[in-house]
Every structure is written in C-alpha cells, then in structure tokens.
Design a binder for these strands. Structure first.
Length: 467
RNA sequence: GCCCCCAUCGUCCAGCGGCCUAGGACGCCUCCCUUUCAAGGAGGUAACACGGGUUCGAAUCCCGUUGGGGGUGCCA
C-alpha cells in the first residue's frame, strides 16, 4: 500500500493539509505501507526552495516522517508533456481555442467550443489542449469514507490538460505522477471530490487504470461559521500554533480527533504517533465536516503539558522566556523550583513567563485593577502583621503558610481575603502560583522589601484599637 | 443556475435494525478540595432537522423536503 501527501508550497502548511498528511501517514503506518511526499510546485512561483522547506519543517515538527525521496512535480514536466502528446496522438485529447466572453452564449456558456473536438486543429497561439470527455456514461468509485459516488459524464466538460503557455495542468500531472509513483490509495480533502472523475478518466486514458485506485475523501475542517477554514480570517497555519505555545504531540492528537476518534474512546494520548497507527482505519473516518475548536485544542495541549515531567516541561518552556524583554534575567534553577506549580496552570507554553515574571523582574509588574481591588484600608494592619512576621519566621514555605494563616485567623477575615494584598504586593496580580512557595523563592529580603513598599503606598499604619 | 457531498448534545467523537429511558470528551453550571488561580474529585445542562415509507421493531435502511457545505479556472 502506497499513499502520498501532495501539498502545493504556499508558504505555510494549512491545518487541513496537516490533517490530511497525518491521516495518510496513519494509514500507511497502520498497514505497514509507504508514505510518500510529492511537492506540487507546477507553478514556477511555487517552486521556490524556501516555500518548499516550510512543508518539510512543518511535517518534521509534527513528527510525520516520509519514506522515499520527495518528488518535485516541477521535475516531472517531461513526463506530463509526454502523456499529453500521447493523448493527442491517440485522439483522446485535442487542441482548442478559447472563446471570448462575449461569444460564450453561442457555445452554451462555455469557455471553449465543443466543435473544436472535430476540427483537428494543431498547436497555435492561445490554443490549449483539452481532454475529450466521453459524451455518455458515468464515472464513479466506491469512496472508502463515503461509499458510492458517481458523476454523469454529460455534466463534465472537456477540461484543459495543457495550457496555452504549454504548461501541463494539475489534472494530468496528478494522474501521471500517481501512476508513476505507484500510489494505491489516495486520501485527501473532500474539496477534491469533483476533480476525481477527471483524474480517473485520465488515469484510464494513460493506461494506468489496471489497478483500481482506492479513494478516500476526508471531511473538511471548518470554522465557527461552518465554512472551509480560510487563510484570511482563520488561524490556518500549522506552524503558527507552534509559535503560540502548542506542542506538536498535542496538535497531532487533536487533529486526529477531527473526523476520527480512537475506538476505545480515550481521546488524549501521550504518544499519539505511536498509539494511533495500530487502531487507525480510514474506513472509520467520519464523513461530515468538523469544527476546529480552539478550546478543545487548548485542553488537549494542557493535558500534554501536564503529562510532561517537570524538568521536561521547564525545558520546553525555555524558548518562551527568550522572547521576553527581561529574558536576560531568567534563571533556570529559579524557574525549576516553581515549574511544577506553573505546569498545572497553563494550557500553552506562551502563558508560562507571565506566571512567574515577578520572580525575575526587579519590581513586580503591577495590575492596577488588582491593586484597587485588594488594597482596601483593612489591608494595612494585615500587611503590617505579615511584615513583622517575615522578619522572624523560618524561611520555608510550609512554615510561612502556617504562620500567615494563623495571622489570618487572628485578623478575623477569611484566609482568601487576607492573602490577597500580600499576593498583589509580591507579584502584582491576584492570581499566580502558590504564594508561600513564591515567597520562599523570592527570599526574605526581597519579600520584605516588596511588602514594605506596598505598605508604604497603601497609607499610614492605623493605630491599634477602634478609632 | 448546474454538479457533488453532508445532516446525533453549543462543539468533537460513539452508535452500523432490538442492548438507546441515545454513550464518552470539550465547553458551560453546581458542589467538594483549597493561600489566589489552576489541577483533581463528585454531580448537572444539552442532541437523533422534518415528512413519508420498509419492518414485529428505526438514530440506525429507502425516498422526499429543508438546511449546511464544497466545486463549478487555461489554480492546486
């Protein structure tokens, strides 16, 4: 069994393409088959190396390895031309002139004149080669996902296989290359269903139809409006997700859940690339479109993040610190002390620095809303109590916890309210990693400095007793 | 317009004629845990588009309607 992933180099790998690549890869690995790569760079614009490299980079990031040297369609033009010539000689294709917009009514609204079929024209300026579609009958196939699909030939126009500029089109290139590469199973997006009759016809015409091709058309991935993901309004570039802090294993895991699900119902897998192949069958793929749900993706990513060992998590988060303006202050050992606590609180790696920046910054980045909310007048005495406590307490998180909570009890307020001003004074925010671990890491001196600073800005200490 | 595909909770996946008073997951809500926020635990909310058949029996099969999507290029 040989499958192929055949993207056009557009400068980014589309999420839908990534899913197609994944399903082809899964099918191949399941069957012990061969996963091939063909770069469809027929257009010269698209054959720029850097555009092609993006595809390799994206596949490598996901961990989808291919088996033979990638085929560059641009290297195969001679074979495509030869096929077109042969079809011309055999009378299965013919030269055709374009019909100007104004005259289209005369030819049934088409862009070409069907009468050209019998004119026996030769090459000429502006003249393209069209495939002679039989007038009667139907082309169909049994789709591995959708079952019987069939098209009346009467509805199919004679399509171009060589443009006026001499270049072969996608239809012929595809048919010729699939045959040459020995492709046995084609797994691609549903948007290609309607070109399938053309490719089947050509496959037959070039004499490659002996072994019937097995076809599977995957449901489209859609946005909240149920439309095909568009480059313009949706986040469709796979590699952008890497930049946003998603793990490749989470992307693979989530993408596999779009149109398919593991038969045992366990959706999140620590190692989807190893666990899915044995259970993946194209026949089981769903046939209706799937919404790309960022929320669920985030959940899946969070699960993968939490499944990482703490050290590994810290390592993976490292690049995100490098992007911070204060990256030179980052200290791996310091982060390592709190990484485990951060790990359960983030869903993407990009959120990590924001959780612990106060440990590295000379001054915590203060959230004015948080300050206004917790620095109420009663907070003065609370801070005073914590400050004097901190001057003497043993500097260890469990101790700090016990003693601060004892002060909270004594204050008559809730623990929650009591800790809030302390947290804001130290971290600048109302939410963050556990407070006492943070204090321990910050150290006695820095903790006191920040508490005093906040206390100073809160206002004068209030004298004891009712005023 | 024409061609093709699709139709189960808001979303993703189960269900392939009786096991369905329709199951799981995300989300959302409630509670527990709790130094914040998470994580974790326990609950809850919520769906077979509609109409005809077929059948003893239909979410499951057939037909139609409606709705959605894709394609209609000398792009791929």
């Amino acid at each position: 069994m040989r499958v192929r992933f055949a993207p056009a180099p557009t400068g980014f790998l589309h999420l839908g393409s990534a899913r197609t690549a994944l399903f082809n890869w899964l099918a191949a690995r399941h069957a012990g088959g061969t996963f091939l790569l063909r770069v469809e760079d027929t257009d010269l614009e698209r054959s720029r190396q850097e555009l092609v490299d993006v595809i390799y980079e994206a596949l490598e990031w996901l961990g989808l390895d291919w088996d033979e040297d990638p085929v560059r369609q641009s290297d195969r033009i001679d074979a495509h031309q030869e096929a077109v010539d042969r079809l011309l000689i055999e009378g299965l294709a013919y030269w055709s002139d374009p019909v100007p917009e104004a005259d289209r009514e005369r030819v049934g609204g088409r862009a070409y004149d069907p009468a050209d079929r019998d004119r026996d024209l030769g090459p000429g300026p502006g003249r393209a080669v069209r495939f002679r579609v039989p007038e009667e009958g139907a082309v169909g196939w049994t789709d591995m996902i959708r079952g019987e699909i069939s098209f009346e030939l009467a509805n199919l126009e004679d399509f171009v296989i060589r443009r006026a500029d001499g270049s072969p089109t996608f239809f012929i290139a595809n048919a010729v290359d699939d045959a040459a590469m020995g492709v046995t199973d084609v797994i691609r997006g549903e948007d290609l269903i309607n070109v399938t009759p053309k490719q089947l016809l050509l496959r037959d015409a070039i004499g490659a139809g002996a072994e019937p091709l097995r076809l599977a058309h995957l449901p489209l991935i859609v946005n909240e409006q149920r439309k095909k993901l568009s480059k313009r309004r949706d986040d469709v570039s796979l590699l952008d997700y890497r930049e946003r802090g998603f793990l490749p294993e989470a992307m693979v895991n989530y993408l596999a859940l779009l149109g398919w699900g593991p038969p045992d119902g366990v959706e999140v897998r620590t190692d989807p690339l190893r666990e899915f192949p044995p259970m993946f069958r194209v026949e089981d793929v769903n046939d209706s479109s799937a919404f790309f749900d960022q929320k669920k993706l985030r959940f899946v990513n969070g699960e993968h993040l939490r499944a990482l060992g703490v050290a590994h998590f810290a390592e993976r988060a490292r690049p995100w610190f490098d992007r911070e303006p204060w990256s030179d202050r980052y200290h791996a050992e310091t982060f390592g002390r709190i990484a485990g606590e951060v790990q359960t609180r983030v869903e993407t790696l990009s959120e990590v620095p924001g959780y612990v920046d106060f440990l590295f910054l000379p001054e915590p980045e203060e959230d004015p809303v948080a300050w206004a909310k917790v620095m109420v007048p009663e907070a003065g005495p609370w801070l005073d109590a914590v400050i004097s406590g901190c001057e003497a307490w043993p500097w260890e998180s469990a101790e700090l916890y016990e003693r601060t909570m004892a002060l909270a009890e004594a204050s008559g307020t809730s623990r929650k309210k009591f800790q809030a001003p302390v947290r804001v004074a130290l971290t600048g925010r109302t939410v963050g990693p556990p407070l006492f671990e943070s204090m321990e890491i910050l150290g006695r001196d820095e903790t006191l400095r920040r508490l005093r600073s906040a206390r100073g800005r809160l206002g004068e200490p209030t004298p004891d007793g009712p005023g």
